[in-house]
Design a protein around this nucleic acid. Structure first.
Lengths: 344, 344
DNA sequence: CTGTTAGCGCCTTCAG
DNA sequence: CTGAAGGCGCTAACAG
């Protein structure tokens, strides 16, 4: 049985409220008693009972984070890194993180309602924003603080952090063009996601700026998983007139393309160039190491919590909307196209 | 502002307690009123306020799960899959999952105390058990329900699920021996972890049964990360008399060895055979696909929650200790040793 | 400087 | 069948 204020009162002889104030560091309790009380608390491993504190304060000191799972075998390491950042940020302020798994689609909002209307959290962190995001609408209506990883189109004022992924994909694509590629494939992300639009634009812009025609046969829409990256990579690379380079919407997809290329006996970095996006640890350690946009995932996690913390506690926020510049990391997965390939 | 019982009372004209009982399905309220009340509740999106419910019930309906992070760039997809399983299991019973990030070592117990003694959770799920696990000791002392993923040596009665990884590693090693390997390296996991001991034993047993000498130069202790797998893989493979096969303590390490092998120009599956352990999605999609022990991670997550749920609610538990048989999956990352290699 | 008191929202006796 | 009342543990306003 954990110790409660009542128990400390018994043991020290002080009243419950004196104990409470002493532990909270109020100045209207003599330093001597405070000392004694704090010692007793430490000795008996006292930790305030959260449910009571929450009820009293009308706050939970918990933030919610729903993992956007696609089916059971969801395993994008991106989210563990992000979660670690969020968790460490939260721990630093004595907050906890409530993690939910929300099946994409129908019951997703229901999961948010349960968490939010049930008063389980003081704020929410949302990822993989959609163009007009039902979750954002709901959270605005519920007047609960939230921050987004990624923008959302129709609500101009919401707090977010995002990477300028339009520029990111454009930079990668431009790099490929610069080193000689003309036939550049693109495996993009699901249609509803906001960043899909940006990444698509970045790709098209790079082509356009270089006067390369947009070839629909070189574009596939994936679901950000490695498995799909492999399947679509095979589709792209088995074409007669196949691309000499492929840009993927995330690293996991890119690693899927690795498998496809390997399976077809194409040497990555020379026969076929491949770029990803995210900069997960696997990207660096892949062979060859993956060219990608290095997203500081852990730091973004911390910063997301930090913004949310300030919003929840009405602290001033320097910037409500942060758009980070993309950081391309050129590694060995890209190289000039093979001479024997016909360009066009 | 979310709706509370008081609000429903105002709107329907019934008293708070009648509303409460109606929503909880008590039979001592007329079906007509119950109907009306339930409709009103649904219409206004009523969800009981957790803090109050928790305080009243002395329960939180929350389970805790601390991710064992090693430094910031922790990103083993194993844990996302596990977390998804736990989360889905919890959601099915209307429980939530509190995820903490615990820096391994000093403050780890402190993190548990905060969660447990602070009454933030009703139960805890522990992974990566250690030989004599301080966390287990604490949780036993605190009388809070918990389940382990992995065994622990000194407490015979605790509830756990584990894979028989001794047999698992033995089977993989035996397979390698069967197809002709004699020089088999092993990159194991950190010393303190319980499963390290089992996996080491499995490796040694396989060698011993085949009369192969244990060669310390073929053994390295890693930390289960890909990065270390690469580093240690290079160490193993750069030796004059290098192994023709390497068994890794987990898939991530094995993928690190992939990088090492690729870097050295060794063809995986012929020049060098590699085995992992866990069966993460990346293993299947790697190139070549990774031979491993397929651990049903998601299902184990669900089952862990299920066991914990039953313990927390004093339901009968069929089995308190579950030791699953290992399921080897032989894929293309292993093959017979090259003839030109000298065996010995 | 310290103790008494009230109340957060919910559930559950107990009265009626 | 329904309403009133108490109390979970904590904090903060108010007395003394």
């Amino acid at each position: 049985m954990p110790i409660r204020l009542k128990d400390l009162a018994m043991k020290t002889g002080y009243s419950i409220s004196t104990i409470s104030r002493a532990l909270l560091g109020y100045k209207d309790v003599s330093s001597e008693t405070r000392q004694k009380i704090k010692e007793a608390a430490k000795k008996h491993d006292y930790y305030p009972y959260q449910s009571a504190r929450q009820l009293r304060a009308g706050k939970t000191y918990v933030v919610g984070f729903l993992i956007p799972t696609y089916g059971m075998r969801f395993s994008d390491p991106f989210f563990i890194e992000l979660l670690t950042g969020i968790g460490d940020g939260a721990a630093a302020e004595n907050y906890d993180v409530l993690v939910g798994t929300s099946p994409e689609g129908g019951s997703e909002i229901e999961a948010y309602k349960r968490i939010v209307a049930g008063g389980r959290v003081d704020g929410v962190i949302i990822t993989r924003t959609k163009k007009s995001d039902k979750r954002v609408e709901y959270l605005l209506k519920a007047h609960i603080p939230f921050v987004l990883l990624g923008r959302t189109s129709d609500k101009p004022d919401v707090a977010f952090i995002d990477i300028d992924s339009k520029s990111g994909i454009r930079l990668l694509t431009e790099h490929l063009i610069k080193i000689g590629h003309r036939k550049i494939g693109f495996i993009t992300s699901p249609d509803g996601l906001v960043f899909t639009q940006y990444r698509n634009e970045g790709y098209r812009e790079a082509l356009k700026n270089s006067g390369i025609n947009y070839n629909p046969a070189f574009i596939k829409a994936g679901d950000l998983t490695q498995e799909t990256g492999k399947i679509l990579g095979l589709e792209l690379l088995k074409q007669q007139n196949r691309p000499t380079a492929i840009v993927a919407a995330n690293d996991l997809t890119a690693l899927g393309i690795y498998s496809a290329a390997n399976q077809l006996g194409l040497k990555i970095g020379s026969d076929i160039s491949i770029c990803g996006y995210d900069g997960i640890a696997l990207a660096e350690n892949a062979h060859p190491s993956l060219t990608t946009i290095q997203v500081p995932i852990y730091e973004i996690g911390r910063q997301l919590f930090d913004m949310l913390y300030k919003i929840m506690n009405n602290r001033p926020l320097k910037q409500r909307q942060i758009l980070l510049p993309p950081q391309p990391v050129i590694r060995n997965s890209v190289g000039p196209p093979q001479k024997k390939e016909k360009q066009g």
